[in-house]
Nucleic acid binder design. Structure first.
Length: 575
RNA sequence: CGGGGUGUAGCGCAGCCUGGUAGCGCGUCAGCCUUGGGCGCUGAAGGUCGCGGGUUCAAAUCCCGCCGCCCCGACCA
């Protein structure tokens, strides 16, 4: 393919809309363009990379025994009402009407549709297990689309759904998908980390997320430095190694003036004591009932854990008026002693003595708080986020490290939530009606593409792994006006294309510097420089994007040398 | 939705405070020159200054309202 016949609009400067490297490079290398917030066009090069990624996903899903289907993006709203998820996902779903005024939604995910299919088509245990998947566009009215393809309103997802007769079957299906995911990401040249995860709106029990470790990632996670434990911050348990008994522990609690000190940092500084000694008291409203949540001063409340512990459907921080009514003091001076609402305390506060908390009076805090002596705690639970340095909850020996990651895949065990609600059932060998157990497995395909770039780039541009590169080789004639240069370039391009390689010939009549810069920006794995100087020495130059290694070959040897080079890249990617 | 920022040519920006009829770099087009890391020269095209209203003799500039985009938070592949 000739560059001048392609659409490759590279940008010299960084578009102001892009913050992180991968988003900038997607735009600068001419892979995508934005239509509106969270909506993107894939230009030819972006589309080529995406197709290669989709093909890897397809091959690995097929290999794992899943069957490809294609479901509608548009769904009748009633289907979602049957599982109760129309209410749960109401805000993220795009809702439309047809000309008959029927209510339709654009699918944010497909549990309902696939289970409806299974309810009709699967009647017997002989048809199980079955795993159906598709690669298809999803629609989600995200609160805040951001970082280009990382969080878009419309994005391509691979979603798979397994149906099994029993728990052992579910485990097999889950493990098969887990293994397939590891292969997929490995083939993409991605280093991922599987972490324990919260199952959120999906419901269900176990789940793991596949994270691409990257500072630009939206998710926080922790991993143990001694064992294999890793978990999303949403659910990670950390074992506090800090002290729980502080100075003056035997003294009775007393109120001390703390003029205008509201935040943990201000109060800790005022008492010249570490923030961990403070008991942070937050007033929440769960299902319209106010309650207090206590966590150590150096930690944040984890609302996902809190909501689960309370089994609440709605949960939000109380507004200032409610705080004032409940505590009798302005926000910033709430404390647990004598509070007239139920008090839930973080596990890490057990045994806290000699602590400092709000006094429920303006401009005052309480010192020498002994949690067991002075506070009526309704229940202890894990309600706070794990912190770097916490002890590992698995092995006990290691310490947790904090990381950031991009969630590219997620696998769930769902149980019978959907199959029951939608009437999926089958007859077992004994003729008894049974409900199949489900699992679901997602990969954010477009997000994965961006994650690859986030993990594989340098100051000059993208560094494509061979498996996803839009083209494997760029042939770069330094001066297209020079006859022998162009003849060599064209002959080489033709020979490589003949051999089945994807080749881009930069036939633009541009200065060498422009073409070199663009070549680095595009990041194709292998570049062949053809110019008067090297031709005079009887060679062309072969340069590898990832290592910068430069070799030469005689023009007539070049096709064979390049094929060997490509094969070597595939080999090292597989290893 | 709350908080912060921003909107001027395809891209990156200046001009705004202190109103006077829009400018720079890159890119684009034509020509010359040059050809191993965004080269040089000449000429040209391209802008309802986000939208609406107001103040004023006069608004990119001041005031009000709205919208888009970006960042932080809840949501998630």
């Amino acid at each position: 393919m000739r560059w001048t016949q392609q659409l490759i609009p590279t940008l010299r400067e960084v578009p102001q809309e892009a913050e992180i490297a991968s988003h900038q490079l997607l735009l600068r290398a001419g892979l995508i363009r934005k239509l509106a917030g969270g909506l993107f066009t894939f230009l030819p090069l972006g589309r080529r990379a995406l197709r290669k990624l989709e093909q890897i996903v397809r091959e690995e899903m097929d290999r794992a025994g899943a069957l490809e289907i294609l479901m509608p993006a548009m769904h009748p709203q009633e289907l979602w009402e049957q599982t109760g998820r129309f209410q749960v996902l109401r805000d993220v779903m795009f809702k439309i009407k047809d000309r008959q005024d029927r209510n339709l939604v654009l699918g944010p995910t497909h549990e309902e549709v696939v289970t409806d299919l299974i309810a009709h088509e699967v009647q017997s245990y002989r048809q199980l297990p079955i795993n159906l998947y598709q690669i298809q566009t999803k629609f989600r009215d995200e609160i805040r689309p951001r970082f280009g393809l990382m969080r878009a309103k419309e994005f391509i997802m691979k979603d798979a759904y397994s149906f099994d007769a029993d728990g052992a079957g579910v485990e097999r299906s889950y493990q098969a998908m887990y293994a397939a995911y590891e292969r997929i990401f490995q083939r993409c040249g991605l280093r991922t980390k599987a972490v324990e995860a919260d199952s959120g709106a999906m419901g269900g029990s176990a789940s793991h997320e596949f994270m691409v470790l990257a500072d630009a990632g939206e998710d926080g996670l922790v991993e143990c430095d001694a064992c294999a434990y890793a978990a999303n911050l949403d659910r990670a348990e950390g074992v506090s190694r800090g002290p729980r008994v502080f100075v003056d522990a035997e003294q009775l609690t007393a109120v001390a003036p703390t003029p205008s000190r509201r935040t943990v940092a201000e109060v800790a500084a005022f008492f010249q004591t570490p923030p961990a000694r403070l008991i942070k008291t937050l007033i929440y409203v769960a299902d319209a009932q106010p309650l207090a949540v206590l966590v150590p001063g150096n930690r944040d409340v984890n609302e996902i854990k809190l909501q689960r512990a309370l089994q609440a459907t709605t949960l939000a921080l109380a507004d200032d008026a409610t705080v004032a009514r409940v505590t009798g003091a302005p926000a910033g001076f709430a404390g647990p002693v004598g509070l007239p609402v139920p008090i839930f305390a973080d596990e890490k506060l057990r045994g806290y003595r000699g602590a400092i908390a709000g006094a429920n009076q303006p401009d005052a805090h309480r010192v020498n708080v002994d949690l067991e002596r002075d506070v009526r705690v309704a229940a202890f639970a894990d309600l706070s986020n794990a912190l770097e340095g916490d002890g590992c909850p698995r092995c006990g020996a290691g310490a947790l490290q904090a990381r950031r990651g991009i969630e590219v895949g997620h696998v769930f065990k769902l149980g019978t939530k959907y199959s029951e609600a939608l009437g999926a059932g089958y007859l077992d060998a004994a003729g008894q009606r049974q409900t199949p157990l489900m699992g679901c497995y997602g990969i954010g395909v477009t997000r994965t593409l961006q994650a690859v770039i986030e993990q594989s780039h340098d100051a000059n541009g993208i560094v494509w792994p061979i498996a996803l590169a839009p083209y494997a080789v760029e042939v770069l004639p330094i001066n297209v006006q020079h006859g022998p240069t162009m003849q060599t370039a064209q002959a080489l391009t033709a020979a490589l294309e003949q051999a089945g390689l994807d080749v881009l010939l930069d036939d633009r009549d541009e200065r060498p510097g422009v073409k070199f810069k663009d070549a680095d920006l595009l990041g194709l794995p292998i570049r062949v420089n053809i110019g008067e100087k090297s031709l005079a020495k009887g060679v062309v130059e072969i340069k590898l994007r990832h290592s910068g290694v430069l070799t030469t070959a005689a023009p007539e040897q070049a096709p064979a040398a390049l094929q060997a080079c490509v094969q070597e890249l595939w080999r090292s990617a597989a290893g």
